[in-house]
Structure formats: structure tokens, C-alpha cells
Design a protein around this nucleic acid. Structure first.
Lengths: 115, 115
DNA sequence: CAGGATCCGCCTCGATACTG
DNA sequence: CAGTATCGAGGCGGATCCTG
């Protein structure tokens, strides 16, 4: 691989990392992943209550939808009356969770000060 | 370390990671770090022109200030008439750059789809 | 119960104009 | 040159109301 293609490759992966960062930095995103990782499967309402603080149903729904679109979460419709939907992490989602846990070291490495 | 303190510790570092993510996901932030990493030292205007696309002076100034506040960037005032200020990464800043490069693997690991 | 629709305030960013 | 001040637009998240 010559210098030019290496440069191009770096720029590309750099942008991907940037997208990934913006994706993960969305409000509640990491917490949703972490909470899903603690259960095999969980219902919408239970997930909502399990999250620390108060997330609106609207945002939780949005996040789950994008997580699903990215192949990180599986949505299973169990049945209506009453509605019953289960969410769980895909293997990819579990990889993400594992990576997030590994990267906790990252913040320690920099001694990233919280403000 | 027992289970309870491990749990507490995880919650804490979890939040730190969250803060770090939101910090890095700010518009232009990673690009500024990457660009600074390519130079030993660089002036405000040159840095601005070196960034891909168009960043406003206002935002660049804001980012550099928070980077400095976090100990990742050093600002050196060379002198007035004409104004001359140099920016460079601190050792911590270089660690961050290195970690970002390493973590590019992260996006590959998940095959994170852009959109 | 699991959301969708709507409204609305907040924050952020870009553009513009100005300064030492 | 290296910013700061101000203004306006857009996006995002919360709250509320509504439904199958």
C-alpha cells in the first residue's frame, strides 16, 4: 500500500470513526446498550424503567430503531393484547458492548477530566 | 474488590466514557486533533485552513479552548502586531490521537454502517 | 403495553461585523 | 492576525396527547 492510498484509507476510516462517535454520543445510546447487555431480552417498558433517570418513550423508540437499523438490536413482536415486544442485543451488539467496556480504559488513559 | 464496589466502579467509569464520547463527538473535534497531530505546531489561521471543509472561527476558537482546558492542547502567544498564536498537542493530546487511531479498528470490528 | 404525532424550548452552529 | 459579539436557523430532546 503506497502513501497515497494509505492517506485515503486513513481519511476514510477517520470519517467512519467520526460517525461512530456521533452515533454513540447520542443521548442515552450507551446506557441503552449497557442495559440491554445485562439482560438476555427485555420489554420496552421494562427497559425504559431500567434506564437511570428518565428517558422519554419517544427517544427510546428512536434509539431502538436506529440500533436495529444498524444490526445491533433485535426487535421481536410477541403479540398484541396487550402489546408485547422484546428487545435484545445481536452478537454485533454484544461486540459493541464489549468494546465499550474495553474502552473504559481509554478514559483512564487520558485521565479525561469531567469538566 | 467485591461485587458491589465493582458495580459502582463500572457505573462511574461508564459515565466517564459517556462524557468522553460526547466530548469527542462534538463537531470538528476529532479533525482538529488529527490535524494538530500532523504538525508540531500550527497557527490559528493555518489550522483553520488545514481543516477539511469550512469551520467557523468561532467554533474553532471554542474547540481549542475546551481542548486546552482539558490539557490536550497548548496555546502559545508569540506576540502582537501582527497577532501570532501557536497551537500544539500536549503529550496527553498525542495520547488521545494515538488512541483514536487505534480505535479506528473499533469501527471495522463492528462493520459499523454509515447510515 | 408499545409506541406515533405534535408542539416547543434549548442548544449549537454558521454568517456577519467588529476589534486590538 | 486572532479572535469576540451578535443574530438567526436548524436539530434534538422532553412533555403531552392519542391509539390499536
Amino acid at each position: 500500500m503506497d502513501a497515497r492510498s494509505a492517506e485515503a484509507s486513513f481519511a476514510k476510516t477517520g470519517c467512519q470513526l467520526d460517525e461512530l462517535l456521533k452515533f454513540l454520543a447520542q443521548e442515552w445510546m450507551t446506557h441503552i446498550v449497557w442495559t440491554l447487555a445485562r439482560e438476555d431480552t427485555i420489554r420496552f417498558g421494562a427497559l425504559r424503567r431500567a434506564l437511570p433517570g428518565a428517558i422519554s418513550a419517544r427517544v427510546l423508540s428512536l434509539r431502538l430503531k436506529t440500533l436495529e437499523a444498524h444490526g445491533l438490536v433485535t426487535r421481536t413482536d410477541i403479540g398484541a393484547k396487550p402489546l408485547h415486544v422484546e428487545y435484545s442485543l445481536t452478537p454485533e451488539g454484544r461486540n459493541l458492548d464489549a468494546a465499550l467496556r474495553r474502552n473504559e480504559i481509554l478514559s483512564a488513559r487520558f485521565n479525561f477530566p469531567g469538566q
